[in-house]
């Protein structure tokens, strides 16, 4: 159906012309954006920012200046409640610079130019554990926002493999086989990073990257064993990759696949998020407001993940 919408969109755009217009778009109200997650064996990490008027400047400064400092953030696992620490880019614990840079989407060098803060805890008591429910509470400017999420039992992939494209023997997609549990609702997230050591002694990728639509649930595959494939998401931002090889892994790549499970409300958030990203600017899709799982009028998500890991050798 999405393909259909794209297809019709293409047909219309082919026979039309576009121009920029300045029209009144009424109804802007500033909202708080909470982006929090917790996964097995990892501390909770919460970023808090604000939404911006559609006509406001969209440069990096405006975005980075929209981060909120001074919120009270707590996470509870049902027995213990911990207030998260505010960690700012100009006062990072040693060795965490790269993690912080990736978290905010900027380079390590730029970190010191901004006073950006995230909320986390180094107390392992509140780090993610399978089978536990985690409640997030954010208090800012007299308003309180709450949400809770659950860390599920992980599901491992049956197998992972790489297959060269017929026309390009050295390039191919990543494939996997999965057996879905017929008795439970399951939703999955696919993330990857290549760990080949390059000539500078560093791995190809530092962090896990999500594909264009990295989430799916078992609505149509409940209880089935099936094969599926995903593209190489890193290749699209890599200017050294020729266009015909975009989306493909190179023969010899070693890819760590992080295959996580999540709750249905978290999946619903991501399903709508990725649909919105895919249909932004397409009139044939209805406007999709991404429904947050956080109460109190905030945008964003509080997500618990239980990953399993596999390494795919592309050969």
């Amino acid at each position: 159906m999405k393909k259909l919408i794209y297809f019709i969109g293409i047909v219309f755009l082919l026979c039309s012309c576009t121009k920029e217009v300045q029209i009144d778009i009424p109804g802007y109200e500033e909202k708080i954006v909470i982006d929090g997650n917790i996964e097995t064996g990892q501390p909770p990490i919460v970023l808090i920012s604000k939404s911006n008027d559609i006509y406001s400047p969209t440069d990096l400064n405006s975005y980075l200046n929209s981060f909120i400092k001074g919120a009270i953030v707590t996470v509870s696992n049902g027995t213990t409640t911990i207030q998260l620490d505010q960690i700012c880019t100009d006062d990072l614990p040693p060795g965490t610079e790269q993690i912080a840079a990736d978290l905010f989407g900027i380079s390590v060098d730029e970190l010191s130019n901004f006073h950006l803060c995230a909320y986390t805890s180094f107390n392992p008591v509140i780090w993610g554990e399978i089978g536990k429910n985690y409640t997030l509470t954010v208090t800012y400017n007299g308003k309180t926002y709450t949400s809770s999420t659950y860390i599920n039992q992980p599901t491992s992939l049956d197998s992972v493999y790489w297959k060269a494209e017929t026309s390009y023997p050295d390039y191919g997609y990543s494939y996997a086989r999965l057996t879905d549990n017929p008795s439970t609702y399951d939703a999955y997230l696919w993330q990857v990073k290549r760990i080949n050591i390059q000539s500078d002694g560093k791995p190809k990728d530092n962090i896990f990257t999500k594909t264009f639509n990295p989430v799916f649930d078992d609505e149509f595959v409940n209880g089935l064993s099936f094969n599926f494939f995903y593209e190489n998401p890193m290749s699209f931002d890599d200017s050294t990759v020729q266009s015909q090889y975009k989306g493909l892994y190179h023969k010899g790549d070693s890819v760590v696949i992080k295959f996580s499970k999540m709750n249905q409300d978290v999946y619903n958030y991501f399903e709508k998020k990725y649909t919105q990203l895919a249909t932004q600017g397409n009139p044939f899709a209805t406007p999709i407001n991404i429904v947050s799982n956080i109460s109190g009028g905030a945008l964003g998500v509080w997500a618990g993940y239980s990953p399993s890991f596999d390494t795919l050798y592309c050969q």
């Binding site: 029209i23 009144d24 778009i25 109804g27 954006v33 982006d35 008027d53 559609i54 969209t58 964003g300």
Partner: peptide, 27 residues
């Protein structure tokens, strides 16, 4: 028509927050 009134960022993706239904009017 319904257009986004605000933009925000989550997990390094720029997302839209839409305004009231059919609150924008075309020329």
């Amino acid at each position: 028509l319904t257009l986004p009134t605000a933009w925000y960022v989550q997990d390094n993706s720029l997302l839209f927050d839409y305004g009231a239904r059919n609150s924008t009017r075309m020329a």
